[in-house]
Simulated assay, not measured.
Amino acid sequence: MLEKVAFTMYPVTDVKRARAFYEGLLGLETHGTEKIGENMAWIEYDLPGGGCFALADFTEDVPHANSGGTIAFEVSDLDELIAHLKNNGVAFASDMFHSPVCRMAVCLDPDGNSLLLHQLKNK
């Protein structure tokens, strides 16, 4: 019955700050920003390998690193991205850790949502 993951959404409290992080620091490009009401926004980012990531400022969900869900972004150069983010003051919830097939680190967006940055070892 299920066909695919339609989107992953994170709640944010400050749309301008969130867009500066996701677009300015991570380089995501929006394909759709909608006003849901007078002061409510929904922002969508199509991801290069497929899928959609969205931000919303109108849900009752409270952004938090321990909210139970984490998106994992596959990256081409984990060391370079970590250095770039740290140089721009991004907080990390973990140091780099290794599995048999990948390297990962967890950073926090400006609202405290956790993002797992992931690089396969064969890349």
Rank of each mutant, 00 (worst) to 15 (best):
G50L: 10
C52T: 15
C52I: 15
A54T: 15
A56W: 08
D57N: 15
T59H: 00
T59P: 05
T59M: 06
E60G: 05
A65N: 07
N66K: 14
N66T: 14
G68L: 11
G68C: 07
G68N: 03
T70L: 12
T70W: 03
T70A: 12
F73L: 15
E74R: 13
E74L: 14
V75A: 10
S76D: 15
D79E: 11
D79A: 15
L81I: 13
L81R: 06
L81V: 04
A83P: 08
H84K: 15
L85D: 06
L85V: 13
L85M: 04
K86L: 01
N88K: 11
A91P: 04
A91F: 00
M96G: 01
F97R: 02
H98F: 03
H98C: 04
H98E: 11
S99W: 00
P100A: 14
V101K: 03
C102W: 03
R103Q: 02
R103D: 02
A105D: 01
C107W: 04
C107I: 05
P110Q: 09
D111N: 03
D111F: 08
D111M: 04
G112R: 04
G112N: 05
N113P: 08
N113C: 00
L115T: 01
L116N: 06
H118D: 03
H118C: 07
L120I: 01
N122K: 05
N122S: 03
